[in-house]
Write a protein that binds this DNA or RNA. Structure first.
Lengths: 342, 342
DNA sequence: CAACTCTATGCATTCGAATGCATTTTATAA
DNA sequence: TTATAAAATGCATTCGAATGCATAGAGTTG
């Protein structure tokens, strides 16, 4: 009879272990709780029985009674953005390292946020890292529900909230300065959707720096951060202004789209005939065919900071808002001429 | 006194709503349960109070008592693979549509699987979609724990499990046939790591079809699916065989790496001097600079199938294993010559 | 109006682990 | 050996919603 007839057998609970080990349920609980008061001998016996039965504490019950779920929610707007996967992977890895699970919410339209928040409250997550647009009212809801929040690469309009950002403005300024120093004068900008926080910050910073240099009325078109919209953006720009020295795309992916279109449709040599810069320093930007001149976000440091900030405020709910702003790193690349022509 | 002194105020529970609405806790529960027996008038009153108090059912308590969490775990091996984000986004979207949350587990090294599974059991998820390598023993654990499982783009060695795959073998064969028909004879293969299911399937299929055509001893090198390893792979191949007509990379990203290296390092015109094909049909493959000749996986249909299969077996735990195999779509692209030279 | 359905509602219990408090056991000191 | 502190253990309760069962109320019919 090698085929044992197994009873429908539900998962063993702490009571099952307790019975089998001849102790109380409390003992079992304490046995697995860090710092629980338990005699080494008893612990050994319980652990043995637990292993044998394949006992695993029920996370739901633990969360319900203790008020701690060891789950954080991650809100990310458009996962397909090529730059986010990297951030997502890093955040997930770092959280997992700290014995925390990730409940992922991907926001197609930013309007779903309310529905998502509803789910966040229901699941009593320990905290939230949000890389999607939140209104001030929404941010206030977090305080009301006492759920720690860290914003990633965006800042609230006026509400107080912890945030980790790459200094888009400074980065964009640096790019513009290099372009100006190299003698570019006829600029075009491929911006993001007007509801994108970083997109707008970069657009404004670029325009401001150009204005400082006496360049007004710079042509601006809007894309949606996609490859296609980069190409479309370039076409639109060249439609307005016949000749351009330099195009500033607010993301690498759009810069790449613009580069491909410049070469393929307009037969331009990059950077000889036209300079194109991006932003982010995402994977494909460094590919040989593009080598986008860009600002690289310090993803490792930023994700680490975000996770640490979140954990800090999970452990100390009186922690006040803090903002950490990381400078990006200029990547010379080869898609822009950054030295004077003569 | 515009500043109300709020008591520390915990989240309202069904009891709070019940008291306020003058009914029992059961009534509140039934009010939100679909098909609960409740008088319209009572329901209206409860809903009003609930809204007013901002009541939200506690998902932990619901999961604990009902045995259903409406959470599925997603196990994904390397998120940075550029092709997975698309799959991840689609799966998340579809699951969210069906009122199901996603617990994300990203596996850096495949060895973490056991630790991840432990967490999966603890959280009593309703099901799992797995795009990472699982051993037969691990697959059996799912049956033991009665957790429905759907494998994405991989099949178990011998154990029974539901799975959704793109027909890699057929796709790779088609690619090889087109290349053969166009007159290519000197082949090289850039395979994946030997523990990659799809990688190995594609490699074997390519080699088999080439052998059928009388081509033995085809050079094979291994990459890790990254852009860099594609370039390195091409260098290694050209090191072994001085001249090659065609290179078969088992993923688009490696094909792209190979294309860039071929152009930049070896000064080859693609596809004039050498054909390079990939696999997946991921975003960058269609960019103007590459236009990789490839097999496109029907991601939309596959993710839909995976989610439907999972839901089917969540609702009917007696459902036996099923395998759905989707044919990929040939993308002519421009990285391979697929018509005879004369 | 009595007899009987059918719908609403409440009561009590359940899910599984954590924890404050009381009690027992063990270790240490006098 | 006894007094006392300290450690180990058990008991009972708690978290918040779902649900089987009993009952109260509304509605129908003869």
């Amino acid at each position: 009879m090698s085929e044992e007839i197994k009873p429908p057998m539900r998962r063993p609970t702490s009571y099952d272990v307790a019975r089998e080990a001849g102790v109380s349920q409390s003992a079992v609980s304490r046995c697995f709780a860090p710092g629980g008061s338990i005699a080494p001998k008893t612990r050994a016996r319980i652990v043995k029985v637990a292993t044998q039965l394949g006992y695993r504490p029920n996370a739901l019950a633990q969360g319900l009674i203790s008020g701690r779920t060891k789950i954080v929610a991650l809100l990310i707007s458009n996962l397909t953005n090529l730059y986010y996967p990297e951030v997502l992977a890093e955040l997930t890895r770092r959280l997992t390292e700290r014995d925390t699970r990730v409940l992922l919410f991907s926001l197609g339209a930013e309007s779903d946020v309310d529905g998502v928040l509803d789910q966040v409250w229901r699941h009593s997550v320990d905290g939230v890292i949000c890389a999607a647009r939140l209104s001030d009212e929404q941010i206030l809801l977090f305080a009301e529900h006492r759920v720690p929040l860290v914003l990633y690469n965006r800042m609230p309009d006026t509400a107080q909230a912890a945030s980790v950002c790459c200094d888009s403005a400074a980065g964009e300024r640096e790019l513009v300065e290099k372009l100006l120093a190299a003698g570019h004068r006829r600029f075009g900008i491929i911006a993001g959707p007007d509801d994108s926080y970083v997109g707008e910050e970069r657009r404004r910073a670029a325009l401001a720096r150009l204005a400082d240099a006496g360049l007004q009325d710079v042509a601006v078109v809007r894309g949606d951060f996609s490859y296609e919209s980069g190409g479309a953006g370039l076409r639109a720009l060249l439609d307005k202004e016949k000749t351009l020295d330099a195009v500033i795309a607010v993301s690498d992916l759009m810069a790449i789209g613009a580069i491909d279109t410049a070469r393929d449709v307009f037969d331009l040599r990059i950077p000889h005939d036209m300079s194109i810069v991006g932003f982010d320093g995402s994977g494909p930007a460094s590919w040989t065919s593009y080598q986008v001149t860009s600002i690289q976000q310090p993803v490792a440091r930023m994700t680490k900071a975000a996770v640490m900030m979140l954990i800090e405020r999970i452990e100390d709910d009186s922690a006040t808002a803090e903002r950490r702003l990381f400078a990006g790193k200029f990547i010379a690349g080869k898609s822009a001429r950054i030295t004077p022509r003569f």
